[in-house]
């Protein structure tokens, strides 16, 4: 009897402890596109491309993704959303990957945190060379040759910024973007145009959204511990550079 009572009291006393975690919030939303997106651009293979590469890649579908990828409800894919002004640890390193497959990069757009390990893989039987360049100062992050199919190289990401990835082995149409942040409060919209940034400490912050062709938008959000804050973005179609 006394034992049960004791246990109950213990549990009762412990329950506030269970409830008293660090209060965290969630930021979620959807991104939509206004206007008719242009079709995917035609890919002109360069004249000096090796025969083997030409034979392999022309056979592949959609070498170049369209600039605007939307679903039927005009939800925009591949939009990077992040918060600025948040103070928090970067958290444990997440493994990320950048794959050369079917003569293109997968994923086309991703967001990583400083300290993550980027695994670069070549799934094609061609020589691919992955060369990310920081858009700000045009500096090279690395330049890796992957001559063998299945070859993998791991690189640790160190400097924040926006990376544009290109392939110098003659595959001039290959293009990808990697956003590197020094925090983990970021997300990339999927096919449904939805994003969710979790574990955000409460406070007022700026929410930014970036799209490769439509530009960047910002807005202020307030995150509370209880209700997730909802923020939607709407981009307009801009002429493709």
């Amino acid at each position: 009897m006394t034992a049960t009572r004791f246990l109950a009291v213990l549990l009762l006393l412990a329950s506030p402890l269970a409830l008293a975690e660090d209060a965290v919030g969630v930021v979620r939303g959807t991104v939509t596109l206004k206007g008719t997106p242009p079709k995917a651009p035609e890919v002109k293979l360069p004249a000096d491309l090796a025969e083997k590469d030409r034979a392999f890649c022309t056979a592949k579908p959609s070498l170049v993704p369209p600039f605007y990828v939307t679903d039927k409800a005009a939800h925009l894919k591949d939009v990077v959303v992040w918060l600025t002004g948040v103070k928090g640890a970067a958290g444990p390193a997440t493994p990320r990957s950048l794959v050369n497959a079917d003569c293109r990069f997968e994923p086309h757009v991703q967001a990583v945190t400083v300290g993550d390990e980027l695994k670069v893989v070549n799934r094609d039987p061609l020589l691919h060379n992955t060369h990310p360049v920081y858009l700000g100062d045009q500096s090279t992050m690395f330049n890796i040759a992957l001559p063998e199919q299945g070859q993998e190289v791991k690189k640790k990401v160190k400097k924040p910024g926006v990376l544009k990835v290109q392939c110098d082995a003659g595959h001039v149409w290959m293009r990808a973007f990697v956003h590197v942040f020094d925090h983990r409060f970021h997300a990339v919209t999927g096919a449904d145009g939805a994003f969710a940034i979790a574990d955000v400490p409460p406070g007022k912050y700026t929410l930014n959204a970036w799209h490769e062709a439509a530009g960047t938008q910002t807005r202020e959000v307030e995150v509370t511990a209880t209700t997730p804050s909802q923020s939607d973005f709407s981009f307009e179609v801009k002429p493709v550079p």
Partner: peptide, 16 residues
């Protein structure tokens, strides 16, 4: 390591 000698070069690295 080509990038160490000439940062920004198009020569890729084969050895790591």
């Amino acid at each position: 390591d080509p990038q160490a000698l000439q940062p920004g070069t198009r020569m890729p690295a084969y050895f790591f």
